[in-house]
């Protein structure tokens, strides 16, 4: 990779000007050392760029806090939407509100019971604690959290349609009263977006976060994985 290509690639990967300057300085230092060892300028730059390793991985690592903030915002946003789906209809009266909250409640109950059955209360709660604490997390705890959140994601996607079917079946008893039946069916249909939002935005985001945290047990781990000599020898 030549210098301009290297800079372009850094730009494409979202490195800001300061980060690009820092990495360019690193490449230049290394290239000069390789030139002193007898390599041509072009070869030296190419090897120096390659020596940095996987730029995509470096970008991910450097920007991880930014990504985590965005993920947290997504989770909070989804939680607000879910809360709104459940709470706003309370204006229609307590009973109406409870009925409208039923889709969300049922989806949550299905997911919670699924997680309970799969992992038990302690392991499921531990995953939430990991997400709550944030920051650098022990590898094993983060990996356990990944399993819980991935299962939660799958469960939420399935729980939406199941809750819809259950609630629709309950509403079927009001078939004789079509306006009541259709409004009940519309309420039951809220279970579908509830499941999707819970799956994609809450559990999906948390699973992604925990997966990234798994790789965060110490950057030195990747330092070793990336390989490449660091000594003065070319």
């Amino acid at each position: 990779m030549r210098e301009p290509q290297f800079q372009q690639r850094l730009e494409r990967l979202g490195f800001d000007a300061r980060e690009r300057a820092e990495l360019a300085d690193h490449v230049e230092c290394r290239a000069q050392q390789l030139e002193r060892a007898g390599l041509s300028r072009a070869e030296a730059v190419e090897r120096a760029c390659a020596g940095l390793g996987d730029l995509r991985q470096i970008a991910r690592e450097l920007h991880a806090p930014r990504v985590r903030r965005m993920q947290l915002q997504r989770v909070l946003g989804a939680a607000l939407v879910l809360a709104a789906l459940g709470v706003i209809p309370l204006s229609a009266g307590v009973l109406g509100g409870l009925l409208a909250a039923a889709p969300l409640g049922l989806v949550l109950a299905l997911v919670a019971s699924g997680l309970w059955a799969s992992f038990g209360p302690r392991r499921a709660a531990a995953a939430w604690r990991v997400a709550w604490e944030g920051g650098v997390v022990e590898f094993e705890r983060a990996r356990a959290a990944v399993r819980v959140f991935e299962r939660g994601e799958r469960l939420a996607w399935v729980a939406g349609p199941i809750a819809f079917l259950v609630l629709a079946a309950v509403e079927a008893s009001r078939l004789a009263d079509p306006p009541q039946f259709y409004s009940g069916l519309a309420r039951a249909a809220l279970a579908l977006p509830c499941g999707a939002i819970l799956g994609a935005f809450v559990f999906g985001t948390l699973a992604t976060w925990a997966r990234e945290t798994c790789g965060d047990r110490g950057d030195g781990d990747r330092l070793a994985l990336e390989g490449g000599p660091t000594g003065p020898q070319p």
């Binding site: 690592e61 030195g220 990336e226 000599p229 000594g231």
Partner: peptide
């Protein structure tokens, strides 16, 4: 280079991943 010197070359780090640290 300081790390390489201290470790006498025994610790091989992927160069680029120093920066996230």
């Amino acid at each position: 280079q300081g790390v390489a010197e201290l470790s006498e070359g025994r610790l091989a780090w992927g160069e680029g991943m120093l920066y996230p640290v």
